[in-house]
Design a protein around this nucleic acid. Structure first.
Length: 476
RNA sequence: CGGGGCGUAGCGCAGUCUGGUAGCGCGUCUGCCUUGGGCGCAGAAGGUCGUCGGUUCGAAUCCGGCCGCCCCGACCA
């Protein structure tokens, strides 16, 4: 790592110039750089399954296998196929944009770590068999990282020596491994998982709470942009330790835990707010934490009934998709992460850590958004925005119309998957509903005779007849 | 880690109790037919029955070891 000074100038410059709105309202280009936004299904690796795989029990796991998103390679370990990968990348993209907007900076730490680091914090022996321990050819103890507090603390303390270089907030999006005794629920509780985690460093507790609040608000925006209703709930700090912590729970009928909250939290809108990450975010945090919300572990029936009027009580189920902690000097102290304070004294930095389960979100979003026919992707994370169905590939007029639309949608930057396979219409409808693209453009000989195609909304099922040359405008 | 279950064709399963030439549905391939909701007809390919050993004239089937996967619980992002 280079010295801290030049780095700090960049930081200040970014802080002055960064604008949340620019990240959130940025025009949506092709979602994966360098790849054509359109694709032909006859050439695409999308192995869908008609029948239910017996290994999967919960709906998101079944749909992920059936819709060709992932394949399991070992218990709790998955290979990501093109569709699943596109969703994963879209989720990552939103997380990254919101992290950057909040002032966090991206790094990338390795998956393999040295046991030495963990001996320093005392967690090597404390962590237990969930940690995958490995040995290299020189018989050195290594491990596949289950989390990165030790590593980031080391990187920070070796490079940052002055209070002038604070605050710092570093994040990365990296694969982690926890050797769960019993992996289950597909990617929602795998052993290998992709996680965004970040770590804030501040001079004092007040600064750490400002950092905490920035992440709190950033998380509200991040999940909202994925079409999820995430409710922050006060949480136990668990083995990570600390005294301020919130879980972000999304509501899904099939969620893993029961949640109890005030209905007012569900419809609260963060995306309509203008956020100033340099300003005081405490009022927003207070607003979201003032109403009752608890998972079953923390639920207090008496308080719930006292604080929430009967008509406003919501009993639902939820899935944890994010967790934020303030933990003070739990790691900085044993690992000696200190900076020179304004008075020249040595100050142990105040830290927090913040996680989002990126791969878990793929399953969680499906749990929150599916129907009997398959997945219903929110547009912001969908593998493609539009599925274009050629109902009769050997009809020259139909295929010509599809080619025209396919080209026009591609040119307009609208992600489009063309089903040009020589299959019965029913098979195409079933597949397209299963994989859940938000919009279907259905081109068949009947409609086309009148110069029209059908545009179907996957979520509502609503269909409308649209003239051929009006499709791009309708979907743009 | 306690308790339970499963491993037979790409997927879903029967066959195992009662040992005797490995089956069904879906999918795949070929041809015909069909083209607005997984259509129809005909033909075909595809399995050392998870693995190793034992019993037996003969093992998918009985016995034992091992491996893998799933479910409930405890645990967890």
């Amino acid at each position: 790592m280079s010295c801290a000074k030049p780095d700090r100038r960049v930081w200040i410059c970014l802080r002055g110039g960064r604008s949340l709105q620019s990240a959130a309202t940025r025009p949506q280009g092709p979602q994966i750089a360098g790849e054509s936004p359109a694709m032909r299904m006859s050439q695409y690796f999308l192995p869908t399954l008609k029948e239910m795989p017996s290994e999967a029990q919960i709906v998101s796991h079944r749909l992920m296998l059936r819709a060709g998103l992932v394949r399991q390679t070992s218990a709790g370990i998955y290979a990501w196929l093109p569709f699943g990968l596109r969703v994963l990348r879209n989720i990552e993209r939103i997380v990254r944009e919101e992290q950057d907007a909040s002032g966090a900076q991206e790094v990338l730490m390795p998956t393999i770590q040295s046991a030495e680091l963990w001996r320093e914090s005392g967690r090597y022996d404390a962590y237990g068999p969930e940690m995958l321990r490995i040995r290299d050819r020189h018989d050195r103890d290594m491990l596949y990282g289950p989390t990165n507090e030790e590593m980031i603390t080391t990187l920070f303390r070796d490079a940052v020596k002055s209070y002038r270089d604070l605050p710092r907030n570093l994040y990365h999006i990296q694969w982690k491994f926890r050797d769960e005794v019993r992996p289950r629920f597909g990617v929602m509780r795998g052993r290998e998982f992709l996680m965004k985690d970040n770590y804030s460093f501040d001079l004092d507790k007040a600064g750490a709470i400002r950092s905490y609040n920035r992440m709190f608000v950033s998380y509200l925006r991040t999940f909202a942009r994925m079409g999820l209703r995430a409710i922050p709930m006060r949480a136990d700090t668990g083995p990570i330790g600390g005294d301020l912590s919130h879980e972000f729970i999304i509501l899904a009928e099939t969620g893993e835990s029961a949640v109890f909250c005030h209905k007012g939290l569900v419809d609260r809108d963060i995306l309509g707010r203008k956020i100033d990450y340099d300003g005081d975010l405490q009022p927003i945090v207070d607003e979201w934490t003032s109403l009752y919300a608890a998972t079953d572990e923390k639920h207090d029936g008496g308080r719930f009934e006292a604080e929430v009027p009967a008509g406003e009580r919501l009993l639902a189920r939820g899935i944890e998709v994010g967790h934020i902690f303030y933990f003070g000097t739990k790691y900085s102290k044993p690992m000696n992460a200190v900076v020179a304070g304004p008075n020249g004294d040595q100050v142990t930095v105040e830290m927090g850590s913040y996680g989002i389960g990126v791969s878990r979100l793929v399953g969680a979003i499906i749990e929150a958004s599916h129907d009997g026919a398959g997945i219903v992707w929110p547009e912001s994370v969908a593998p493609f925005k539009v599925g274009l169905l050629n109902l009769k590939p050997d009809d020259a007029a139909v295929s010509a119309a599809c080619a025209t639309l396919y080209g026009a949608l591609g040119k307009a930057g609208i992600d489009c998957l063309l089903d040009d396979r020589d299959l019965r219409p029913g098979a195409k409808f079933a597949d397209m509903d299963l994989v859940g693209l938000p919009w279907q453009v259905i081109v068949g000989p009947k409609g086309l005779a009148a110069g029209k195609v059908e545009v179907k909304n996957r979520r509502t099922g609503a269909r409308e007849e649209v003239p051929l040359d009006g499709v791009v405008a309708r979907l743009g």
